[in-house]
Design a binder for these strands. Structure first.
Length: 492
RNA sequence: AGCGGUAUCGUCUAGUGGUUAGGACGGGAGAUUCUCAUUCUCCAAACAGGGGUUCAAUUCCCCUUACCGCCGCCA
């Protein structure tokens, strides 16, 4: 069996989308599983929508996800260049070949004429297919049109190719994930393979590139199924080996529409910015259409590759459920070693002065605040009370907790007792336990007692382990905040 | 409109010609805890509808319905 070579061919008209990331992943997995090569090709045929920024984003995102390519624009390879715009001199030769063999013809129709054809089709409630008006133009007619200054586009002659290589008008192929697929090619219009400005169209460039790059399997989204028939015919007309195709279901938003910005992040880099881990993202996206044979959903890309069989991918669309991604993200965050996590959280703590904390204190802070993190960015709002002398009290905490008589009494007692405590973890832990016990005997629930202390010192009623907080803040600041929360009249 | 595709809990999915149709997220209840969270236990929740084939259909076939995609000198 010849070498397995697969590719991901994003078009740099935006940042790398999660859908593209998933397609890239499945290609990567297929290559890994079959000891093949994973190739990156940039399809920037449309210069107007392309930018270097997007190209960089695609590179960075793919790398961050761990989807490293064997051949590509940056690393090169035996079949380069791997950027379509650098391959423009390759295509005309094949266009000419098709022209010579009669599988393609020049089309002088103007945009207006084409528009009219389309309108008529719409009016008659017919599917639009090109009229083939220019199929049999004589040399004289062409010369005349050319003299008028018209530049021809080149169209592929579907019927001719179909007849040359198949018995009927039905074209069939065996899809890697969907099984046998077929289509009546007489319903397809003769499509443009070279624009009047000389640039190749997508459907043509893809075929040439895939053939020249010896791509053995084309794995992509099912929105390409109808292109496949056109592409197969070009492969055949040019005498190339036709690769195997596999079409993946699409990823939809929770409302079943196309996943777009209004649903949340869609580009890999947006997810990263919001505090998602690439490990979680790639793991989650693998589960859209694929299920592990051992039932354990948490898996690295390598583990997935070992267990991967393309024929077992679900062929239906799947909905991108942010909730499950979040769960998975929190799961991965829990597994990060503390030293690494300390570094990863720093970008989300820029509004605080980290210099206020020693490394030891910072470590402690991360240890006691990491548990509830779903996104790395959640850390931002979880830690304001570790910084500064004073603390901002939430209004509802002020009125609902601190202003109560019980809280005031607890705080007076707390300040009184705590000033004699040794500010160590063990002592704080045991003293606080005793403190709660004393108030419990007076009929105050432990949590109410702690609410008072917590509210005074952190400004909120929920948060990290109280012993840890006190330890990090130190005796002076802790008592300062506690005293400050006591109202004048309560102070004895 | 036409052509293609898809159909198991709300979501991602496992599964089989005979199963109490399994798991995960989410939801609900409870336990643990100084709070939130974590963790643990338990619960609810699905084979789209109609015809066949068959002793038997969620599973195979057909139709309907719903949803998705494609019909560009975009990619």
């Amino acid at each position: 069996m010849s070498e397995v070579r697969v590719r991901i061919a994003p078009s740099p008209s935006g940042n790398l989308h999660v859908g593209t990331a998933r397609t890239a992943l499945f290609n990567y997995l297929f290559a890994k599983k079959n000891n093949g090569k994973f190739i990156l090709r940039i399809e920037d045929t449309d210069a107007e929508r392309t930018s270097q920024e997007y190209i960089d984003n695609i590179f960075d995102s793919l790398k961050a996800l761990g989807l490293n390519w064997d051949e590509g624009p940056d690393v090169g390879g035996p079949y380069g260049p791997y950027t379509q715009s650098e391959r423009f001199d390759i295509y005309p030769k094949y266009v000419q070949k098709l022209l010579d063999s009669g599988f393609a013809y020049e089309c002088f129709c103007t945009p207006e004429e084409l528009e009219q054809e389309k309108e008529e089709a719409t009016k008659a409630k017919r599917a639009y297919v090109y009229s083939k008006k220019c199929e049999n133009l004589s040399e004289e007619e062409k010369a005349k049109l050319r003299a008028e200054g018209r530049k021809p586009a080149i169209r592929f002659n579907i019927a001719k190719a179909q007849k040359a290589f198949h018995d009927t008008s039905i074209l069939e192929f065996d899809d890697l994930v969907k099984g046998k697929l077929h289509m009546d090619t007489s319903l397809l219009g003769d499509f443009v393979i070279q624009k009047s400005n000389g640039a190749p169209t997508y459907n043509f460039a893809v075929v040439i590139d895939d053939a020249l790059m010896k791509i053995s399997h084309v794995i992509r989204g099912e929105d390409h199924i109808s292109n496949t028939y056109k592409q197969i015919l070009i492969f055949e007309a040019l005498g190339f080996d036709v690769p195997r195709f596999g079409h993946l279901g699409m990823i939809l938003a929770p409302d079943r529409s196309k996943l777009s910005k209004r649903h949340g992040a869609t580009a890999v880099s947006d997810f990263v910015k919001e505090g998602y881990l690439t490990e979680a993202l790639i793991n989650f996206v693998a589960l859209l259409g694929w299920a592990p044979s051992d039932g354990n959903e948490i898996k690295t890309v390598d583990e997935i590759a070992a267990d991967f069989r393309i024929g077992e991918i679900s062929s239906s669309n799947s909905i991108f459920e942010y909730d499950k991604l979040k769960w998975m993200n929190s799961h991965y965050i829990k597994q990060i070693p503390i030293d690494k996590l300390k570094e990863m959280l720093k970008p989300y703590l820029t509004k605080y002065n980290l210099n206020e904390l020693t490394d030891e204190q910072y470590t402690k802070m991360v240890e006691i605040t990491r548990e509830p993190l779903t996104l790395l960015s959640d850390i931002t709002d979880a830690v304001p009370y570790f910084f500064g002398k004073d603390v901002e009290i939430e209004p509802e905490t002020q009125t609902g907790t601190l202003d109560t008589e019980t809280a005031q009494n607890v705080l007076v007692d707390f300040v009184e007792k705590a000033k004699d405590w040794n500010w160590t973890e063990e002592e704080l832990h045991s003293k606080l336990e005793i403190f709660r016990g004393e108030w419990k005997e007076k009929g105050i629930k432990p949590k109410v007692t702690m609410w008072a202390v917590r509210a005074a010192i952190t400004g909120r009623t929920r948060g990290a382990d109280m012993v840890g907080i006190l330890e990090i803040l130190g005796k002076e600041t802790s008592l300062y905040r506690a005293k400050k929360a006591i109202k004048q009249e309560s102070k004895v």
